[in-house]
Structure formats: C-alpha cells, structure tokens
Design a protein around this nucleic acid. Sequence first.
DNA 1: TTTTTAATAGACCGATCGGTTTAGAAAGTC
DNA 2: GACTTTCTAAACCGATCGGTCTATTAAAAA
Lengths: 187, 187
Amino acid sequence: MVRTVFEKADAIALVAEVFRELGYEGASMSEITARTKLSKGSLYHFFPGGKEEMAAEIMAHIDGWFVTEMFRPLEEEEPSVAISRMWETAEGYFRSGRRICLIGAFALDDTRDRFPSVIQGYFQRWIDALAGSLIKAGLRDGEAKALAEDAVIGIQGALTLARALCDDAIFDRTLTRLKLRMEAALK
Amino acid sequence: MVRTVFEKADAIALVAEVFRELGYEGASMSEITARTKLSKGSLYHFFPGGKEEMAAEIMAHIDGWFVTEMFRPLEEEEPSVAISRMWETAEGYFRSGRRICLIGAFALDDTRDRFPSVIQGYFQRWIDALAGSLIKAGLRDGEAKALAEDAVIGIQGALTLARALCDDAIFDRTLTRLKLRMEAALK
DNA sequence: TTTTTAATAGACCGATCGGTTTAGAAAGTC
DNA sequence: GACTTTCTAAACCGATCGGTCTATTAAAAA
C-alpha cells in the first residue's frame, strides 16, 4: 500500500482549488478526495470540522495572503508604489481570470450566510485600504472612495466575464483600463 | 388533500429564484420542492430532464427577457433612449443587488461547462448590442467596445460586492457612476 | 354522464452525500 | 528495539441526493 504524506499547508492549497472550481456545494468530499489525492482520513485529520472547517481555513488563508501582499502595503507603503504593486498582485493572483476569487464566488449564493464576516471583511478592507492610499496620494475623500470601489468592482466583474466568455484577454484588458483610469485621476 | 395547480411559467419563475439563492449544486430537489411548494411529480411533469432541464429553461427564459427588454432595444432603438432605458432595466431587474445575475453566477463554477453557449451568448450579445448603440451614437469603435465591456463588467462586479458587503446602496451607486461615465464619453 | 387527459402528491429507488471508525504504516522518543 | 504519536487508507454509517413510479384528483372532451 502506497502512502503519501501531506503537510496541512498543502492540503489547504489543494482543497482551495477544488472549491474554486466547483463551489462550496459542488465540492463533495468524494470529488475533493479524487482531485487532491488526499484520503478522507487525511482530510478529517487536518479538518475535523469537515467541509465547513476546510472552507473557513481556506478563506482565512486567502485573506491572510491578501493582507500581507496587498492590503498592508496599501495601508503602509508609499501610495504610488503600493497601488502599482496592487495591479501586479491582482494580475498575478487571478491569472488572466482563469482563477476566480473564491470569496467573491461564495458571496453570490447562500454560502455567504455561512461566512458573512470573513467575506464582508475581505472586501471592506480591500476598498478601505485602497481608498486610504488614494487619499494619501492627494485625492479628495469622496473621489478616493468611489475610485477604490470602482477598482474592486471592476476586478470582480472582469473575473465573471472572463469565465463567461472563456476569454483570457478581457481580464488583463480590464485591469489595464482600471489602472489607467486611476492614474488619470491622480494626474 | 389540498391540491394546487401551477402553470409552467410559474414553475420556471419559482424554481429560478431557488437556483438564484442556492446555486446549481446547492439547489437540491428537496430544497426546490420545499421552497416552491411544487411536488416532485409536478416538477418532473414540467421538466422531464430534471435539474439540468430546469436550469436550461430558466436560462433561456432569462435570456429571452433580456433580449426583448434590453438587447433588441439597444440594437434597434435610438441610442440615447435605449441606453438610458438599459440603466433603468438593470436597476429594476437586479433590485439594488439583492437579486443576482444567475447566468453570471453559473459562469463562476463548473456549472459553466454545462451551459457554455448560453452563458457566452448572453454576455456577448449584451456587450455587442451596447457597443453597437454607442457607435451609432457617434463613438469610435474601440472606445465603444471598451465602454460597453466596462458597463457590463461593472454591473456584474457590483452584484458581487452588494452581496458580499450586504450593502444595498453600492449597487445603485455603481450604476449611477457607470451611467455618468458613459454620458461623459458621449459628451 | 362517461371517458380521457393533464397535473399533483408523495412513497419509493439505488447512488452518493458528509462524516465516523478501525486498522495499520511511518516517524519520532526513549 | 519497544513504545508512542502522527498520519493515511478505506470500510462503513445513516441521511440525503436526483430521479421514478403509482395513485389520485380535477378538468376537458365526448
């Protein structure tokens, strides 16, 4: 009998991709075991709480990644640096829209009601961090808020359309448009 | 024994709301019967093909509604009239983001692979009809295309964020911003 | 009225669901 | 080497899944 040993970090990353592709309800335990090669024994060893705990830990992991890679830089670094790094981070993370935003996808159906605070906190912090950076860069409060909202909305919408149209180009094109619009507002 | 008689049109509308709230995989037959009060007998009488046929008919119904209420007007009517009617139609249909776009939601997970052509066709026709109207209104080809894409993406993104933040205001605010931006481009 | 048809209610089916348990393999500890 | 701990594999569980079937009802057709 062959035995493969996994780290919990690997388990989180592997299971995350299954949720991303199938959604919370679509990701059955048998699909998760089939796609990740993690047995049920391993999965329930790492996540005694089952699917709900898996999803919670995955969301916490994603949120943590965005905090260090995007939100904290926006909150602490020089606006022009942090903002242009934000566009690069988004482009790299979502891979031309082939990789969706799991937290955004969970928001659309009743999965939202299982994790309302994580979902809300993730997007609120993104918008607030970006708006704060824009204010530091010299924009008025209202304009900064609108531009930040517009950027996050644009990214989420672009992910939906990239998948709907099976069009890799639309996501990068949208990111470029959003970036230019923001730079124009910053003069 | 109480017996309620339904029309197929009612069945489509009722089941559509369940899919909208729970997603394709989340909408189990027992949830559908519980929420719609349609028995399994009735459901399989109207939709012998089961869940897949329900979803297909619902999407066709939604697509047809958008064609008559939004796409055809954009293709045939005076641009300024059709475009401002588009914003009203979107505002009315999505109800401040409390009602999501089912076709957009299906695009995000592997439900897309069950209905790829309907999903792609719906968004492509929306973008094309809007871009065509903008060209008729005097915009250059590239600018019209970008603005149309931007509008549809903005609506989809705003739906995601309205639900994620549990914020009714953000959807209408985004629609207003998109509308003003388009009017500014049309001078 | 009688017959036929359209439609509903819900018991029922095998398959799959999320989750538990048991057995045992690898790795560390002494 | 003996013992303990950590982790994996897979059989197994009751519940629920999507879907079928039968009985019954109401209305249309005759």
